[in-house]
């Protein structure tokens, strides 16, 4: 028992702690007990946003224009595919590859950087699908609260993601 705990703690202290906080706002569309589309809004914390805005708002006009949006999409957003966009979609406990996001739009609002994007053409059974939000490397903390979720017809259950190496959240449709 003691050895297990010591080993667990040793493994844990080797992992990093989060430096960026992202609030996740999912908008879930359901049709006939199937999730057909999810629109996500990620709100980055103000300090990380300021660092990114300084770099990404290249003309300094306080807005993300079309070229800047393309640059962010190609250089900052799409590389997150390696991290499954910090979102594991599991169907009957099997993790699926995160669908390619569409309609990506970055914007600056109240000194914060927002990423808006959709995943469409889904046919996910609401009873067997779970969404786990978190960064396994623990550099980014994904924050999800029940009040962040918008959903039609049904209700969403948000719970803590039980993981020994990082902290995250789980969303299930009820």
């Amino acid at each position: 028992m003691k050895i297990t705990l010591i080993l667990l703690l040793i493994c844990n202290i080797l992992f990093a702690h989060p430096h960026t906080f992202i609030e996740v706002y999912p908008n879930v569309s359901i049709h006939n007990d199937k999730i057909t589309k999810i629109s996500f809004q990620w709100k980055l914390d103000e300090m990380s946003s300021s660092m990114l805005i300084m770099e990404l708002d290249q003309n300094g006009d306080g807005k993300i224009d079309k070229d800047e949006n393309t640059f962010i999409y190609e250089n900052y957003f799409m590389p997150l595919v390696d991290y499954n966009f910090y979102t594991d979609i599991s169907i009957q406990e099997k993790v699926k590859r995160f669908p390619t996001p569409s309609n990506f739009k970055a914007l600056i609002k109240n000194n914060r950087l927002y990423y808006n994007f959709d995943i469409t053409n889904l046919q996910l059974d609401i009873h067997t699908t779970k969404f786990d939000f978190g960064d396994t490397d623990f550099f980014v903390a994904m924050i999800l609260k029940k009040e962040f979720v918008t959903i039609n017809e049904r209700d969403a259950k948000v719970s803590d993601l039980d993981n020994d190496f990082y902290f995250g959240y789980r969303m299930e449709i009820q």
Binding site: L5, D45, S50
Partner: peptide
């Protein structure tokens, strides 16, 4: 039970940092 306590500790650490991060920038 100990693992659950540890997870809760980790959660509280994250939430506290999240709040302090937001508070300091504001």
């Amino acid at each position: 039970y100990i693992l659950e306590l540890y997870n809760q500790f980790l959660k509280q650490l994250i939430m506290l940092q999240y709040q302090l991060n937001s508070y300091i920038s504001t």
